[in-house]
Amino acid sequence: MEKLEDHEILSLVHTDKEKAINALFKQYYNYMCHAVYKIIADSVTVEDVVQEVYYELWRKIDKIEIQTSLKAYLRRAAINKALNHIRDQKIKFDEEEKIHELDLVSREEGQQNLELQELQDVINTAIDGLPERCRIVFSMSRFENMSYKEIAQSLDISIKTVENQISNALKILRATVYPYVTSS
């Protein structure tokens, strides 16, 4: 199926709703999953969250007015659902995060002149290695541009906890990317 424009999908809703949703799956499923995965690094949960967004869209698509692009709407809906999911899990964000020595000095050799692509690879690996709670808070800041206050409110945690988690995340990322500094 070729890529359909928003207005084509929205007019398809009236004639063949299932086909319209199918088009939305083909065009945005991966995009939405990746956006959510940046925050929740668990494929099963991510797919459940996104599936739920499509299901809700199916139920209300005749009634809602989407004035942004469908892509932006779906992304926002998926992120909101993911954040609600995290809050419902009642994860204890304020417990002391144990940073293993192993995490901090994982690269022994001094690799001081990282090329840009290399740096990206190293960062990707480092982000993938973040503990769950660090990753959630860090990603909300980095990828959703949420302020400390917004993060605190949507997870129902204190700003102090957000500060701690951000600090931990950056500490781990830095130790992974620039190991030669911390090993001294």
């Binding site: 499923y29 991966n30 797919e47 990707n124 982000i127």
Partner: peptide, 18 residues
Amino acid sequence: NQAEGYSPNVVFNADAAF
């Protein structure tokens, strides 16, 4: 700055999900 370019190395199957 570099973290902004992070893209998870996972593949999702849209057809199976549909």
